[in-house]
Amino acid sequence: MKHILITGAASGIGAASARLFHARGWRVGLLGRDAESLAALAGQLHGAWQRALDVTDEQAVAQALQGFCGEAGALHVLFNCAGLLRFGYFEAISTQEHAQILQVNVLGLLQVTHAAFPYLKAAQGQVINMGSASGLYGTPHMVSYSASKFAVRGFTEALELEWRRHGIRVGDLMPPFVATPMVDSQRFTPPTLRRLGVALRAEDIARAAWRQVHAPRVHRVIHWLFTLMYWAGQLSPPQANRMLMAWLSRE
């Protein structure tokens, strides 16, 4: 049996991924901040392991990795799915909330990955990071989130090269907007979202994670529209990409 540990598993993409991997015969470990939702999901998935925690709590993260891997005996995939998002004008969002987004999306991901290293090395496992289309273009009205996903992209690229010597694969998923409770609960709608729309569901990203496990890429770009934007961004001058983003985010 293969084992996957998923952060941010209480809802959205994390929960959808847990259901998919469990349905396909994997043992799933669930980490998340919402203890009630996490317990409810674990009750639906026979044999699932779960623990409520904040990924920015380094000691709690280390204990959780030890608990899951000690019981499971191996860690084949770590899916860093925990994340925070807030739409709005930069100056209208408190510095405390900006900091929390960066702490969860970057520091939390880093701490979980660091704690998972010995278990991933033993199994020659794989890390999947939850990236975003906003990690390719700086996206207005989601400034700190976009900054965090730029960091995730750089982290993924660097660690993928560094951990090759251990036989550990590292990659990220890069979707545009996804219909999740986190997106649906926002009080502000960015112009970029209005123009691009929300064409993906959490289940689409879960299936992309499944494909990533079996055919790893450094960056797995999701949805045909963003695939076109991604490759256009690789081939066109930076100024052209900036003009495109300026048009998409125009109010």
Rank of each mutant, 00 (worst) to 15 (best):
Q100K: 15
V106G: 01
G108N: 12
G108A: 07
L109S: 12
L109P: 05
L109K: 09
L110A: 13
Q111G: 07
Q111K: 12
A115C: 12
A115T: 12
L120D: 06
K121N: 06
A122N: 01
G125R: 03
Q126F: 00
V127P: 01
I128N: 03
N129H: 11
G131M: 11
G135A: 12
G138Q: 07
H141A: 11
V143G: 01
V143K: 03
S144R: 08
S144W: 02
Y145F: 14
A147K: 00
A151K: 10
R153E: 02
R153Q: 12
L159M: 15
W163Q: 02
W163G: 05
R165T: 14
H166A: 04
I168H: 10
R169V: 08
G171Q: 09
D172T: 00
D172S: 02
L173A: 02
L173P: 04
L173G: 09
M174E: 14
P175C: 13
F177P: 00
A179K: 13
T180S: 11
R187I: 10
F188V: 10
F188L: 05
T192I: 13
L193T: 07
L193F: 01
V198W: 05
A199P: 07
L200V: 12
D204R: 00
I205M: 09
A209S: 07
A209R: 05
R211G: 05
P216D: 05
V218D: 01
H219T: 07
I222M: 00
F226T: 00
F226G: 00
T227I: 13
T227V: 15
L228Y: 05
Y230A: 15
G233W: 00
